[in-house]
Design a protein around this nucleic acid. Structure first.
Length: 779
RNA sequence: GAACUUGUAGCUCAGUUGGUUAGAGCGCUUCGUUGACAUCGAAGAGGUCAGAGGUUCGAGUCCUCUCAAGUUCACCA
């Protein structure tokens, strides 16, 4: 053995050794363990399973992914204990993320998604993802993760897709799906709507304009939405304006006059601005709410004035087609120039330092546009049918927390989760992108041709959009369907939920369908939220019964609401059982100074680079040692270096112990030295301590204890004592074997590599450390 | 406005149901190549555990308040 441990030389070789033995597959581990030392079956009969949070299929790993180490430590520990252990890998299609990246690529080539019909675009993205799909999985192997690759799943695998669609149908049957025209959070750059969880809020300073509004004055930061106004609102207790309540007022605009009612609503804060608010139902959430409650007082039917491209429409001609920012400028310019009949300006004042918070796209940071779109929603807290316990998704999830069926590990995160669950709004699951699972909803065409807007690429590869009725005059339905980009059906159009065209199943006529399919796809998180159920149901027969509920879900606390919570909603709904008994939420990885990592700061750690320089074991140990769930963790070069030094220490301790056993000196005692009994007492207490910490999911502590005991007890004291014959070489060997086993989950490569050396020298008998027995009390 | 988290050695952090002289890594000082490891060993300096009060035989650990930092949510015409 060399005097130094060389991680580069051994790691790949060791991983191959495990893979060849099929040591990650629970179906072969039992046999492997028996063969390992020709022993009795030492299975515990317990089951232990973790579903890997699927990384994006087309992205390389970042440090956050290296935290999968936590899962690997648990899995390796339980495998050695003799539990029936599964760690199931997969990757995610990451709908919006991936399409966004792909569109960037198209843009570079001078193209856009509007050049392609849906199926062509889908195929292009598919190919693109396939090209990159092995990046993430290869990297996971480099870090030593003992994932059962034979059970690998991709979120767009056909069986997974079928499963997700089936869930949707179930939800629909249970009355938990509805289609409604609501204001959704729409990003006009990404071209899709988002759920409330995907909107970030940023503080911004924008001018606040106060304008004359009939006899009242109102303040707004968004004058461009003024075309969509249908009323003015004041607080019911505001004495200044009481006389106007319920009255119609005449409002003068630079482009003409309009009469509208004054409504009274408690939402209006009399102390803010002038105490009067213009009501634009289709472009502001609060206005929408006010409109809904005061519908009977407002005769005018609101119209949207901003479209999904962020352009003005349904406005006076000169403004139509302008982008939001340009429209704002144009409106202001006109206000500045305009004088009313008495020569006064309608623009009263401008507060240039007005600070407010603006919802922005989590993906591209562009301000979110609240737009009225018909979308599909999941009722998260349906109480209309108390008999059907399943139907209140939120309640079920809360119950599983109350009963302890689901335990949350992570400083204070359970409270956060409960808060989320209690305040959760219905979940918008429609996304206007191609890269995802198509929604199995079909709209009836007959009698609704005027209510369905279609966009498609025509014969000449030109993007066309308009009412279906208009296009059917010149183009066949078949052709439109083949080249479809998107459709938008009015909320009044009847629809069926079906995988196949509902008409085709009942008619003998070919291609004379009376239905057209929704072009929206599911929110990626809708499929992700079924991941523990779907991966096990679509895998080897019996896997679901064998491994569900899973033992641990380990992920970052940042996706607690967006993912973990939703898995609880749907997992419980689908199976009546929690998808995971424990949720382990790791903290964010920060740099050595405790600063957040970001590309602009240049302090991002690439796990693969760390692996190259210090070895995978060092990376793993540095991340796990002294980590606590829910708490952020700082790591930097000194930490990797310290952990790398540990690999070398282990290597040398093994080397030297072997040397002593093979060439005992005169001072050595082979067996029964005076200190042996006391030594065993200590060793036993270490074994119990480490085992307890690992069973309790206290990995940071387990790692720290084993580090200290190995280095400062075994190496510094025991080896020195053995040199002087205070303890025997026999027990020193037992100690080495025990420590290698306990270190293995954390540092699998160096320990297995030493083990193979010891095997050659007949110092150990079990053939593979990875499937060896976890140490029990020695005597 | 609210909730949550954090405050322990120069730095980054552990501290397991309250229980001897409060720990680690890095850094620092002084020694040291005697059968492995200098990616090492030995010895050592360094902490009124943010502050104040309380519960207790006993508090870094539990409770209350104060101060500070961070995160998230809500509102924003």
């Amino acid at each position: 053995m060399d005097s130094r441990y060389n991680s580069q030389q051994t790691e790949d070789e060791i991983y191959t050794l495990w893979e060849k033995a099929d040591a990650f597959n629970p179906d072969s581990v039992k046999k492997l363990r028996q063969e390992n030392d020709n022993k009795q079956d030492s299975s515990t009969g317990e089951q232990f399973s973790i579903i890997l949070p699927p990384p994006n299929a087309n992205d390389p790993l970042h440090v956050g992914h290296a935290m999968y180490t936590i899962e690997d430590v648990l899995v390796r520990y339980h495998r050695m204990l003799g539990d029936d252990t599964l760690w199931l890998p997969g990757t995610d299609h990451a709908g919006i993320e991936t399409q966004f990246v792909f569109e960037k690529k198209l843009k570079k080539e001078g193209k856009s998604r509007f050049n392609f019909d849906r199926s062509t675009l889908y195929q292009m993205i598919w190919d693109y993802v396939q090209e990159n799909s092995s990046v993430a999985t290869d990297q996971m192997k480099k870090l030593g993760f003992s994932l059962d690759w034979s059970r690998f799943k991709f979120t767009l695998d056909k069986d997974i897709v079928d499963n997700v669609v089936e869930t949707f149908q179930l939800l629909y049957k249970d009355g938990l799906i509805y289609r409604d025209l609501k204001l959704v959070n729409y990003c006009t750059r990404c071209g899709t709507s988002y759920s409330e969880l995907e909107v970030n809020h940023e503080d911004k300073i924008d001018p606040l304009y106060t304008i004359q509004y009939g006899p009242l004055q109102v303040s707004t930061v968004r004058p461009e939405t003024i075309f969509g106004d249908v009323a003015v609102a004041i607080n019911p207790n505001d004495d200044r304006y009481k006389q106007y309540i319920g009255k119609m007022i005449e409002v003068e605009f630079p482009w003409g006059n309009k009469t509208m009612p004054v409504i009274a609503d408690n939402y209006v804060d009399p102390k803010f601005g002038t105490g009067a608010v213009k009501v634009t139902p289709y472009h502001d959430q609060n206005d929408f709410q006010m409109w809904e409650t005061h519908k009977s007082e407002i005769s005018e039917v609101p119209v949207p004035v901003i479209n999904t491209s962020g352009k003005i429409y349904n406005a006076p001609k000169k403004y139509n087609g302008l982008g939001v920012i340009n429209a704002r400028a144009a409106v202001l310019e006109d206000y500045e120039a305009y004088k009313d009949s008495q020569g006064r300006s309608l623009l009263i004042s401008i507060d240039k330092k007005y600070s407010h918070s603006v919802g922005v796209c989590y993906r591209c940071a562009k301000p979110i546009e609240p737009l009225p779109l018909p979308q599909l929603f999941i009722k998260v807290a349906d109480s209309s049918n108390p008999k059907n316990k399943k139907s209140n998704l939120v309640k079920r999830a809360l119950e599983s927390l109350d009963s302890g069926e689901t335990k949350i590990h992570g400083a204070g995160r359970e409270k956060v989760l409960r808060h989320w669950l209690k305040n959760l709004k219905d979940w918008n699951i429609s996304r206007q992108i191609v890269w995802g699972i198509p929604i199995p909803v079909w709209y009836k065409i007959n009698d609704n041709e005027d209510k369905i807007i279609v966009s498609f690429v025509d014969k000449n590869k030109v993007y066309q959009t308009g009412k279906l009725s208009k296009w059917l005059e010149t183009t066949s339905l078949k052709e439109i369907k083949q080249n479809i980009q998107s459709i938008s059906a009015d909320i009044s159009v009847p629809y069926s939920v079906s995988v196949e065209d509902p008409k085709l199943t009942t008619t003998t006529e070919k291609d004379v369908s009376d239905y057209i399919q929704e072009t929206d796809t599911f929110d990626t998180w809708f499929s992700s939220s079924q991941w523990p159920v779907a991966t096990l149901k679509t895998n080897k027969k019996g896997d679901f019964e064998r491994f569900y509920s899973t033992s641990v879900m380990e992920t970052g606390y940042d996706i607690l609401p967006i993912w973990v919570m939703r898995m609880m909603l749907l997992g419980n709904y689908l199976t009546g059982k929690t998808p995971f008994k424990n949720v382990y939420l790791h903290g964010l990885i920060r740099d050595e100074k405790g600063k957040k990592m970001s590309k602009s700061k240049g302090n991002v750690i690439n796990p693969l680079e760390v692996k190259e320089e210090f070895g995978a074991d060092a990376l793993r140990m540095a991340l796990v040692i002294r980590s606590t769930p829910g708490q952020d963790k700082s790591v930097g070069k000194p930490d990797f270096k310290a952990a790398r030094n540990l690999t070398n220490k282990i290597w040398n301790a093994a080397r030297f112990t072997t040397l002593m056993i093979e060439n005992p000196h005169e001072t050595s005692v082979l067996k029964n030295a005076p200190g042996d009994a006391e030594y065993f007492v200590k060793l036993n207490s270490i074994i119990s301590e480490i085992s307890k910490h690992l069973s309790d999911l206290k990995l940071g502590l387990a790692a720290e204890v084993i580090y200290n005991e190995f280095w400062h007890w075994y190496c510094d004291i025991c080896i020195e004592d053995a040199k002087q014959g205070k303890i025997s070489l026999e027990v020193l060997k037992v100690g080495l074997v025990t420590f290698l086993k306990m270190l293995h989950p954390f540092m699998p490569f160096v320990t297995e590599s030493i083990w193979q050396e010891l095997l050659k020298k007949n110092i150990v008998s079990e053939k593979l450390l990875i499937v060896s027995d976890w140490p029990t009390q020695v005597s």
